[in-house]
């Protein structure tokens, strides 16, 4: 009896041979990737590795010099590293503005849904400028999720947050992933990649040096068996980075 395997869902986001230069400096060199449905892909690497450049190209904010990206721009939610929100507007006004600009069918319903998901209903009328960094970042992520995109790109979403705010942030992201949204996030906190990433993509000096699960990366450096961060550093050092 022939066993039929279910057809693999098409990758909602794929990039092929991406290269980006800023003047003489090569920020990204021949990087390819694909993101599966509901997958959480962590992009890690030292400072200047090209993480932000890669996410900006995937989001359609930057154009690659070479290579291509298969995606529909509006099907991607993008959360930049710095909160891209208006400090003088309230939480609800920020969400309403971007819901209208995203041409969401029912902007008020989307705003209400996001206020619930972010736990900011009671702060809905507060100006963004008066919120903590963590809450601003929650609004930043909520804006990325307003149009209910199949893929969410997050550029170092937890940087500058304290551990408690970070925990609440990842609860929000995890909830989104469990609902089927593919998540691509960059981070310089290696432990987050191990904990929240189904797959890890390691960039160094603009080059893609590893793709696989956190366990696979761990296995590359058995000497640092009990410490993922030590394994990551040893992995980079072994390859001259």
């Amino acid at each position: 009896m022939a066993v039929s395997t279910p057809p693999r869902a098409p990758a909602p986001l794929a990039a092929h041979h991406l290269t980006k230069r800023f003047g003489q400096r090569v920020a990204l060199s021949d990087v390819s990737l694909d993101v599966r449905v509901g997958e959480r892909l962590a992009v890690i690497g030292p400072n200047g590795a090209g993480k932000t450049t890669l996410l900006a190209i995937l989001a359609g904010v930057l154009a690659a010099d070479e290579g291509s990206v298969s995606r529909e721009t509006r099907a991607l939610g993008w959360v930049p590293q710095q909160p891209a929100v208006y400090s003088k507007l309230s939480v609800a006004e920020n969400l309403r503005l971007f819901a209208r600009l995203e041409r969401v069918a029912d902007p008020e319903a989307a705003v209400g849904r996001m206020l619930e998901q972010t736990g900011l209903r009671e702060r809905a009328d507060d100006e963004l400028g008066r919120l903590s960094g963590g809450n601003r970042q929650r609004v930043n992520i909520a804006i990325g999720l307003l149009a209910d995109p199949p893929v969410l790109l997050l550029d170092e979403p937890s940087s500058a947050l304290d551990p408690r705010q970070r925990e609440r942030l990842w609860e929000l992201i995890e909830g989104q992933a469990s609902a089927g949204t593919s998540i691509v996030f960059s981070t310089h906190i290696v432990g987050e990649a191990e904990r929240y990433g189904d797959r890890v993509l390691v960039l160094a000096d603009g080059e893609l040096v590893f793709t696989g699960t956190p366990e696979d990366l761990h296995a590359q450096e058995p000497a640092a068996a009990r410490d993922f961060e030590a394994a990551f550093v040893a992995f980079l050092r072994a390859r001259g980075h």
Partner: peptide
């Protein structure tokens, strides 16, 4: 300054 420009011009405006 509010970092909103990139978000706006990636398909919204």
């Amino acid at each position: 300054e509010e970092n909103a420009f990139a978000r706006l011009v990636r398909g919204l405006v």
